Simulated assay, not measured.
Amino acid sequence: MIQSPGILLYLLAFVLVLGPLVFLHELGHYLAGRWFGVKAEEFSIGFGREVAGITDRRGTRWKFGWLPLGGYVRFAGDMNPASQPSAEWLALPAQERAKTFQAKPLWQRAIIVAAGPITNFMVAILILAGFAFAYGQNVTPAVVGVVEAKSGAAVAGLQPGDRITAMGGRSVDTFFDVAKYTQLRPGEQVRIEVERNGEQHALTARIGERVETDRFGNSYRTGRLGVGPGAAVLKPVGLLEAPLIGLRQTADIVQMTLDGLGQIITGRRPLSELGGPLKIAQVSGERLAMGPVEFVFLIALISINLGFINLLPVPVLDGGHLLFYAVEAVRRRPVEPQVMEWAFRGGLIAILALMLLVTLNDLGAFGVWRSLAGLIG
């Protein structure tokens, strides 16, 4: 039976996920700017007309915008979208200009910009570290316990007792490494290196495909090699070790994100798998309905993706600003304002086009286009 959390739970979960993550992202920018003596004029959660706000004693306006799909910190000196000095900035008194973003050295501006994505990664690391400390770490060795008949593993010649040491050129330590590699690659052919009776062997297997449907009616196409582990091994994790495990798991998730993005770019996965705000709301509501552990883990995943996306070298994103700072460091002079302005416009167009694409995908996933086609037909 298909279960639906309901639209109110979707909206509540969406706000509970995106609101705090956007706040923490912008708080990273704000705190780094404050550390270097930059005045923040506005701190906004959401875009558009102000719904509510308050001005603190430092002159920063903390507010909520009516469109809760992001946020921003506007520092003194950020007088145009491309963060370029302007005549208005040059006209400021020297004492005020010293507190502006553009007056700071290049390395300080780079830290302020990078602080937002870094904060998102730190949030995820802390969450994953907490899970590792609370539940332990699965360190089940990558030793084949069972081989499913007629599976890709069986056809390739994998046998119980084989220790998988590498897949597709990547080293494998645990059985979880095997699972996460195969799940992303349904239908692909992969080179598998195994240790058998003390000898190294190289096999070629075609990963099978499996379509799974969850209790909410969502279908997922995943890869399945057709092997199972022996006895599971769960290792307790100490308080000092937990952050290192959280960091390692965060890096693994970033790697999986890069793999998925590469598959979409190369056409191995359809563009329809890209989701937007509506998909985030749906998944958030479903994970909230499944319980706090699933919901908090989702927060970690979205926080990682928020940090990753913001580091992409696209003008208008944090990564675009960092790219121009890198060019400035090499050239020893800033990029020309006209170039920055046109790059910003191009980046904005690209982001808007992507938002349109993922929104269309979301509507398609919700069956809107099928319903319209049925009405027209």
Rank of each mutant, 00 (worst) to 15 (best):
V211Q: 10
E212P: 02
E212R: 04
E212G: 06
E212L: 13
T213R: 13
D214G: 05
D214H: 07
R215D: 09
R215V: 10
R215A: 15
F216D: 01
G217F: 04
G217Q: 03
N218Y: 05
N218F: 00
S219Q: 10
S219L: 07
Y220R: 03
Y220K: 02
Y220M: 11
Y220N: 14
R221I: 04
R221A: 12
R221C: 07
R221Q: 13
T222V: 12
G223M: 09
G223N: 04
R224C: 00
R224P: 00
L225V: 06
L225H: 08
L225F: 01
G226V: 02
G226E: 02
G226K: 05
G226L: 01
V227W: 06
V227Q: 08
V227M: 14
G228I: 08
G228R: 07
G228V: 01
P229R: 09
A231V: 13
A231K: 11
A231F: 12
A231R: 15
A232N: 11
A232S: 15
A232R: 12
V233L: 15
V233W: 09
V233R: 15
L234Y: 09
K235Q: 15
P236Y: 07
V237E: 05
V237M: 00
V237W: 01
V237C: 02
G238C: 06
G238I: 05
G238W: 06
G238A: 10
L239C: 11
L240Q: 02
L240T: 10
E241A: 14
P243H: 03
P243L: 13
L244M: 14
L244I: 09
L244R: 08
L244N: 06
L244Y: 13
I245N: 02
I245E: 01
I245L: 14
I245D: 03
G246N: 01
G246M: 01
L247I: 00
L247M: 12
L247P: 00
R248G: 02
R248L: 04
Q249K: 14
Q249W: 01
T250L: 11
T250Q: 02
T250C: 11
T250D: 07
A251G: 14
D252L: 12
D252W: 06
I253R: 10
I253Y: 13
V254H: 08
V254C: 12
V254I: 15
V254W: 08
Q255V: 11
Q255F: 09
M256E: 01
T257F: 10
T257D: 06
L258G: 08
D259C: 03
D259L: 11
G260I: 08
G260F: 11
L261Q: 00
G262A: 05
G262D: 05
G262L: 04
G262Y: 04
Q263W: 11
Q263L: 15
Q263S: 09
I264C: 11
I264T: 09
I264A: 06
I265S: 05
I265V: 15
I265Y: 10
T266P: 01
R268S: 04
R268K: 07
R268P: 03
R269T: 02
R269W: 02
P270T: 06
P270A: 05
L271K: 05
L271I: 03
L271M: 11
L271Q: 05
E273C: 02
E273Y: 05
E273A: 07
L274A: 09
L274D: 06
L274N: 10
G275K: 12
G275S: 12
G275H: 03
G276Y: 04
G276D: 01
G276H: 10
G276N: 00
